[in-house]
């Protein structure tokens, strides 16, 4: 029987995984809640709160340890919020089954450059484009697994912005944090190291979920006996994840990320097929 204590404990694991991968964790939490008998809309509403908890709980450590790049995060937030607002606005005029297929295809792009990303080398030196250089999109962090400072420079700032609009559209249209899309854009387009991508995504998803939470607040779908234990559990899990991430090597982190992305692709294709 699900109660506040057991839900808190489940949420610790969700927050832990969400903070490590930069995915937020709502896409794992929501099916579990539905399976346990929670109405789907209330489960999604609670999932949004879990994203904010994961984001803030883990970002506190990641920003303190200088792994999250706040400049890159703020530049990308501009696009993802625009996408989320547009997505939430046009969601009623596009058939949902097409959305699931479109976003599943987008997630498949995560596997582009899989070999490069799973290699355990440091961040590859990147020639910055003019916009990325003008925005000063670069940084460094100390990688505890490699025991050295990793310096990196982002590139393709405008394409990355466009990619984040797609991530925002996914968030706004599907009612998710869309962390997987954000990590994919940061790694494949902006060419950021995996740990910077995960942590910067974690930082950004809190803002995306914030706007969505307001919608669910208006709809009266936030149940305190669900939301409070989920917030407690995911925050604790995210704080633990925030302390573990930097000790993991990039390869382990990427395999964890890809395992969850495969699960998300299957989930989206299933929803797309069953909604036809």
């Amino acid at each position: 029987m699900l109660n506040i204590v057991s839900l808190s404990l489940i949420s610790v694991l969700i927050g832990f995984l969400g903070s490590l991968t930069g995915l937020g964790g709502a896409s794992i939490l929501i099916p579990i809640l539905v399976l346990l008998g929670v109405p789907v809309k209330e489960a999604i509403a609670a999932g949004m709160v879990s994203i904010i908890a994961t984001s803030s709980g883990s970002a506190a450590s990641y920003v303190r340890d200088r792994i999250t790049n706040v400049r890159i995060a703020m530049y990308l937030e501009m696009f993802t919020i625009t996408g989320a607002i547009v997505g939430a606005t046009i969601t009623s005029v596009i058939a949902p089954q097409y959305l699931y297929f479109f976003f599943a295809a987008f997630l498949l792009t995560s596997f582009i450059g899989l070999r490069r990303l799973t290699e355990s080398s440091g961040a590859a030196p990147v020639n910055q484009d003019n916009v990325s250089r003008w925005l000063n999109l670069k940084g460094s962090y100390f990688d505890e697994a490699k025991k050295r400072v990793i310096e990196y420079r982002a590139t393709n700032a405008l394409w990355g912005g466009l990619g984040m609009i797609v991530a925002g559209l996914a968030a706004g249209m599907l009612g998710i944090g869309a962390g997987a899309f954000k990590v994919t854009v940061q790694e494949n387009i902006l060419k950021l190291p995996p740990k910077v991508s995960s942590t910067t995504s974690n930082f950004i998803i809190g803002m995306t979920a914030l706007a969505a939470t307001s919608v669910y607040l208006f709809s009266g779908l936030l149940n305190l006996t669900l939301v409070a234990p989920i917030a407690i559990g995911t925050t604790i899990g995210a704080v633990i994840g925030g302390r573990v991430l930097n000790r993991l090597n990039d390869k382990s982190l990427r395999f964890l990320f890809f395992a969850i992305v495969v699960y998300l692709i299957v989930q989206m294709l299933y929803k797309g097929v069953t909604s036809i």
């Binding site: 109660n3 709809s219 149940n223």
Partner: peptide
């Protein structure tokens, strides 16, 4: 510590 899915007092709006 049961989760109250039907209790309207538990919903915030």
């Amino acid at each position: 510590l049961d989760i109250l899915l039907q209790d309207k007092a538990m919903f915030i709006q």
